[in-house]
Write a protein that binds this DNA or RNA. Structure first.
Length: 657
RNA sequence: GCUGAUGUAGCUCAGUCGGUAGAGCACUUCCUUGGUAAGGAAGAGGUCAUCGGUUCAAGUCCGAUCAUCAGCUCCA
């Protein structure tokens, strides 16, 4: 290793493509970038030395693998935005002296800084701060790293910067660390581990997006701070592209498309967070449900139905009530003629009902696994600020199933559930799905039901199944439910926000609480294991994300209106009606536009309405007994006989392509 | 739930200094009968979210409530 060399005159650096260069010892990442090319030297933001990010001008003393970090990489963007947050803090300090700064990290889509200030920030302040940030950029200030003892840093932030928040971070979060680093840029200094941009001049475009509040250190008992969010780029052009992406996301927003395409509605008269499915949306939902029911039939699931409410004792027994009482609608209470009180809960979960179905008769080991499935509507009193269209509602329907199996069947059954979920996601065209293995937090054991060894076993089983299925997962510590670990399938919406859709959960706790058992081959009682699983998760949330994913351009099998017949003139209305009738009798959802409008207008409206097939009929088609097909967003698709058209569309619908 | 913003026609949005409300699209009717993304004309459409206050006068100013949006916190 190079460590044994004492001040060598030159060092060997290995670039990511494997080439090795010899440079003088003490060269910086910038020197190396410049030796590679002028463009790279301009784009270079920092350097990674043996995997460790460093400032671009830090000197490299030993042989190393190095990589020049630019804005094109996630870590380059992260660093750029982190530096931008420092520049924003400096701008704010210059415009609003006396502002104090909490945390100011980069996020996946920009950065923010938490600020304590006498001044209440408003929209117009953001424009001023942006201008100031660009001005600081033009000043071409070097971001200089300084390392100091933690105790000295405390003194510095107490006396020089007079920033109590940084002092608290130094005294608490960083209390184990002896030497910390500060970054100076002109008159501004921040506590930061770095690395940072070499100069503020890299910042060429900035957009401050919104102001909100947050609690200092995320603790609602601490003071609230003003948080300013923004995003920045090394060029004006990239900012423009970003703004265009935001506008596209806005167009795809399921709340907007849901209203435009008449899929669902929300009304304060019904209640906040209680979506209502309009006829068009109900078609999509019922097609999805039919799709899953069909698949579940093939995979040995048994459909059941259970009521929307249940005696509160059921939920006390399951543990849901004590754990989640604050996010449930208050119990319905009534007194019978004898004055006896009974309380019912709008069901927040389907599992207790299913457990009682399981235990309604004696089960043999030969009967297992038993897979009970239901599209079960549940009600949860989510916090008002959390409600969001279809993706976060207070009433929603889970495509729920509980699988009761023997311990020796568990891993196979988890694998089957994963396979079903993957099949569903693949069919609906979700290719970028993240899989999270949600485990418990050992430091917080009292949050969970069941014993430590039960958890150990459950997590081992989940891991084994995930490995066997070849899933590319990440681990979410503390993300487990109170009764067991789970595998969650996470998809992003149009705005890049992540939502959990499908889930597969292992549960050793409920079988105990509900005293579930089966008779084994030894004639003795044994505990089954329960798997909770829901491939869609919630129909509401899934469809909300699906709307954004498809931008409302649903595949033919899901489209509320699959085809619209567009007659060119009144003299072919009869022919149009016969085509329409043929489509309807083939089970295709079709309409006919007989208004006295020109064909161009009818086509435009069908396009705007995102109807997959436009079937244009005029005198020519009437004479030949054919139709002219136009596909949504594709244009003219040629002429077909009605019979050929129906066959073609039927095939596409059945295959769900 | 917390902090902030917003709420005007079915939709998108104007509405100045407080003086009884406007556009485009959509809708209805009539004219027009046409060939792959907007034909023409006329008409109708409003308790300015709700409730209260200030004022001679409130869409406009103030307060409360409800809802929505952004973020925080939470998520079986």
């Amino acid at each position: 290793m190079s460590d044994i060399q004492e001040n060598p005159a030159s060092i060997a650096i290995t670039l990511p493509d494997g080439t090795v260069r010899t440079v003088p010892a003490g060269s910086s990442g910038f020197d190396i970038a410049r030796s590679i090319g002028k463009r790279l030297a301009e784009d270079a933001l920092a350097v990674r030395v043996n995997g460790k990010p460093l400032d671009l001008h830090a000197s490299i003393e030993h042989d190393a693998c190095i990589e020049i970090i630019t804005f094109d990489t996630p870590s380059g963007r992260d660093m750029f935005w982190h530096s931008a947050s420092h520049i924003m803090a400096q701008a704010i300090e210059e415009i609003f002296p006396g502002s104090r700064f909490g945390a100011g990290p980069a996020t996946e889509q920009g950065f923010y800084y938490d600020i304590a200030s006498e001044h209440r920030f408003r929209e117009e302040d953001l424009r001023k701060i942006e201008q100031k940030m660009l001005e600081i950029g033009k000043r071409d200030l070097r971001l200089q790293r300084e390392e100091m003892k933690r105790v000295d840093a405390i003194a510095y932030f107490t006396n020089v910067r007079k920033d109590p928040y940084k002092v608290e971070i130094l005294e608490d979060t960083l209390k184990e660390i002896e030497t910390v680093s500060l970054y100076h840029q002109g008159s501004f200094t921040d506590l930061c581990s770095g690395p940072h941009l070499p100069t503020t001049a890299k910042l060429k475009a900035v957009l401050l997006t919104n102001i909100s509040t947050s609690y200092w250190r995320g603790d609602s008992s601490r003071e609230s701070m003003q948080r300013i969010y923004g995003i920045a780029f090394p060029s004006e052009k990239q900012l423009k592209e970003h703004v265009a992406r935001l506008e596209e996301a806005k167009r795809r927003d399921h709340r907007k498309l849901g209203a435009e395409l008449e899929l669902f509605m929300l009304s304060p008269e019904i209640g906040s967070g209680l979506p209502v499915w309009l006829p068009n949306g109900a078609i999509i939902r019922s097609e999805l449900e039919a799709f899953l029911k069909e698949e579940q039939r093939k995979r040995g699931y048994l459909p059941v139905y259970t009521p929307h409410i249940g005696n509160i004792d059921l939920y006390k027994r399951s543990g849901h009530y004590p754990y989640y009482s604050d996010s449930q609608f208050p119990p319905l209470t009534y007194h019978d003629e004898d004055g006896k009180q009974e309380q019912y809960l709008l069901k927040p979960m389907n599992c207790p009902h299913h457990h009682l179905i399981y235990s309604s008769k004696l089960r043999s080991y030969r009967d297992l696994p038993i897979r009970l499935a239901e599209f079960g509507t549940v009600y949860r009193h989510e916090q008002s600020g959390e409600l969001n269209g279809l993706v976060r509602a207070r009433g929603f329907t889970q495509d729920d199933s509980h699988i009761y199996c023997r311990p020796d069947q568990l891993v196979d059954e988890i694998c089957n559930a994963i396979d079903l979920t993957q099949f569903v996601f693949r069919t609906l065209g979700f290719s970028e799905v993240q899989t999270r293995l949600s485990t418990h937090d050992p430091a917080n054991q009292e949050k969970y039901g069941g014993t430590a060894e039960v958890w150990k076993q459950a997590e081992r089983d989940v891991l084994e199944a995930a490995t066997r299925m070849g899933i590319d997962y990440f681990i979410g510590i503390g993300e487990a439910s109170f009764y067991g670990p789970k595998i969650d399938f996470i998809v992003r919406d149009a705005l890049g926000r992540k939502w959990q859709l499908g889930t597969v959960q292992v549960d050793y706790v409920m079988p105990e609480r509900f005293d579930l058992y089966y008779i084994g081959s030894d004639g003795q009682k044994h505990r089954p294991v329960v798997i909770h699983r829901a491939p869609f998760g919630s129909m509401e949330r899934f469809i909300g994300v699906l709307i954004e994913h498809t931008a409302g351009n649903f595949p033919l099998w899901l489209a509320p209106v699959q085809a619209v017949v567009l007659p060119i003139a009144e003299e072919v209305h009869d022919y149009a009606k016969s085509v329409h009738a043929a489509l309807i009798s083939a089970g295709i959802r079709a309409e006919t536009d007989t208004r006295s409008e020109k064909i161009g207008k009818k086509i435009r409206e069908a396009e705007v309405g995102k109807i997959p097939c436009m079937i244009i009929v005029g005198q020519k088609e009437k004479n030949s007994g054919e139709v002219s097909l136009r596909r949504h967003r594709q244009g003219d698709a040629g002429s077909f006989t009605v019979e050929a058209l129906v066959d073609m569309l039927r095939k596409e619908i059945t295959e769900r392509t």
